[in-house]
Design a protein around this nucleic acid. Structure first.
Lengths: 251, 251
DNA sequence: GTATTTCCTTGACCCAGATCAATGCCCGCA
DNA sequence: TGCGGGCATTGATCTGGGTCAAGGAAATAC
């Protein structure tokens, strides 16, 4: 919840490359997947690749919304601040995430790189052009936005009505379901090793809790043999089903 | 927060009318405004008008998402439930609101009429057809969804980080800004009479509080001469600016 | 190898808002 | 005009999670 007022966007390695999209390993996971191979040069011409160092803010809430971003590597946190520094993390943007959908003239949130982040940047006008030329892209964006809305509503339920225990369980289950292999329900025996690129403080700001409550609750899960905590950036889910039940308030 | 398990959708007065859109007074406020006068018959042919009685649920979370809705009169509450009945109201849908954007196969939330509600109902396939024929409609929907996302993020900040006092102030200011005339900042002198079609309990479920806290906080605002409470469905904002400052955490 | 910093954990205590419990108010109905 | 049933208000008390404080552990710096 502390306001570690970081410096302004420090951006290294900005460059253009017409053929960049052809070898983009994030494409299958992103909105760009709807653009056919034949049109990749057109897409690449509109994009600028930007690398953002960990801890640096590349979108500042309130700034004029000139660009749209597509995360192609690393994870960023999206957040909003109150004047006294209280922070709400509204989401984590991983590879494939499309950022900047706000139609208004200024950004509604800030974005800061947690790890080394690589993004594809489009200017507002260039994206407009792409949307006009590729209606499929517009359809895809609507689909993405609709899914985001569903996720946002789920998060409102969490923030408004769930207990600390339920919030942490929800968070762990959501992270576990991100895992490439078992995108569903692992049995209570199987071990799922989830990666946490964010600090406890960022988890707290995401779940509307304090860092101490996050820590205590995780310790309790460990004591109950629901999880293991090998180190600060990894958690092993031992009892997925049990955690899932806690997450959905069935306990 | 109590689960008043209402009956299933009780729908009266369902009818079709090709020319309905031509006299729709909700059109200027809704996504349909992007359809030109010449194409209104096409739009009307796809829509079914449905009237929903107060207290009746016309969208049930988890049900297959077969329809999209456009509210043309009245206000509905959108909400999600936990198994034990805890409720989170994720929004209020007034005239012009487009409902059902969830792209997944089932609804992510329920919707219940607060007053007598009238909606325009489109089947999934009919809407698909409209979107293919009117790209402007798709653009508009993306714009609407993007705005919804911004609102959702603001609500996450409220639910995760604001105090009860700040939440109520935010709610009152948001309602005041809905007023047709002064869509901005009324001076601290001017009286703004806001209408509340929802009960205290629904306000509580929207703000992540209890009914008692809502009531106490409003009473305190009244004691501080920030508002007047002529009756249960109306509140007069006396000091817009002061409330706005409270809402944004500047106190 | 030691110092510094940053993050995490744990304990003791506190408080904003929840819960429990009356009571009041308004409105429709007879 | 009085009665009954929802809401809403208000008071008393409780508690989950916040706050304050004191280490600990792991990473980076020197």
């Amino acid at each position: 919840m502390t306001a570690t007022t970081r410096s302004r966007p420090l951006v290294i390695d900005v460059h253009r490359d017409q053929s960049i999209c052809a070898h983009c390993q994030a494409r299958p996971f992103s909105v760009c997947s709807v653009i056919g191979d034949d049109d990749l040069e057109r897409l690449g011409a509109a994009a600028v690749t930007v690398t953002v160092q960990p801890g640096h803010t590349f979108i500042q809430e309130g700034d004029p919304a000139e660009h749209f971003f597509n995360v192609t590597a690393g994870t960023a946190k999206l957040f909003k601040l109150l004047p006294d520094g209280r922070r709400q993390v509204t989401g984590f943007a991983a590879t494939g995430y499309f950022l900047g959908l706000a139609v208004s003239s200024s950004y509604a949130f800030s974005a800061e790189a947690l790890e080394l982040v690589r993004v594809c940047r489009f200017s507002r006008s260039k994206l407009r052009g792409l949307l006009d030329d590729f209606p499929a892209l517009e359809k895809k964006l609507l689909e993405v936005a609709s899914n985001e809305l569903v996720v946002a509503q789920e998060q409102m339920l969490l923030l408004g009505r769930k207990t600390a225990r339920e919030r942490l369980a929800s968070f762990l289950i959501a992270r576990a379901n991100l895992l490439p292999h078992c995108a569903g329900h692992a049995p209570d025996g199987a071990k799922e090793r989830i990666h946490l690129p964010m600090t406890r403080s960022e988890i707290a700001d995401y779940l509307g809790l304090t860092i101490e409550t996050v820590s205590r609750t995780l310790s309790r899960f460990k004591a109950e043999q629901l999880i293991e905590i090998p180190n600060n950036t990894e958690i092993v889910v031992l009892k997925h089903e049990t955690l899932d039940n806690i997450a959905t308030g069935m306990t």
